[in-house]
């Protein structure tokens, strides 16, 4: 297992874990849809009620996962694996939107000899309207955090 930079007590709630801007283009959406083998008119042509193409609701959090959370977690806390996740889908994400994401470390806890951190990402459009919330809890795998060893 790799060593980690932060000790458990040094993990500070409120720490910003990353920022990202993602331009939602036709090409980005087409690539995602082909990967998922998705052929739903909302996403492919912009069927009613939206009127123009929207992204699958979870696409933005997925594209943002590395720069918003994982780069920080892997670099500072070491290996980790997702234990829980929660989304709120507040508004559709249209092609042409540039989505702005910011991530924060919001919770840490110990349970059954394991240690966990929870990070939260907030995604907004250019006007600051919230589009998606993503809250995920990662179990820490490094021996430094394994209370069972």
């Amino acid at each position: 297992m790799q060593s980690v930079k932060l000790a458990w007590d040094d993990i500070q709630l409120g720490t910003e874990t990353g920022r990202v801007d993602i331009a939602i283009t036709d090409a980005v959406l087409d690539f995602y849809l082909s990967t998922m083998e998705l052929d739903i008119a909302w996403f492919t042509t912009g069927a009613a009620p939206y009127g123009k193409r929207i992204a699958p609701p979870d696409m933005v959090p997925k594209l943002a996962m590395e720069p918003l959370f994982q780069d920080y977690l892997n670099g500072n806390i070491g290996q980790n694996i997702r234990a829980k996740q929660a989304f709120q889908f507040i508004a559709p994400v249209f092609v042409g939107t540039t989505v702005h994401g910011v991530g924060h470390l919001v919770e840490k806890y110990e349970r059954r000899g394991r240690r966990f951190v929870t990070v939260e990402g907030v995604f907004t459009d250019d006007s600051g309207n919230r589009l998606v919330l993503d809250r995920r809890t990662q179990m820490l795998l490094s021996d430094d955090f394994n209370m069972r060893s």
Binding site: I40, P56, K84, Q85, F89
Partner: peptide
């Protein structure tokens, strides 16, 4: 995908949480 397919064009999948 499972939820949005079910909710169709009239529904809104608002919240979702799950564990791995």
């Amino acid at each position: 995908q499972h939820l949005t397919n079910w909710a169709g064009e009239t529904g809104w999948v608002w919240k979702l949480n799950f564990q791995f």
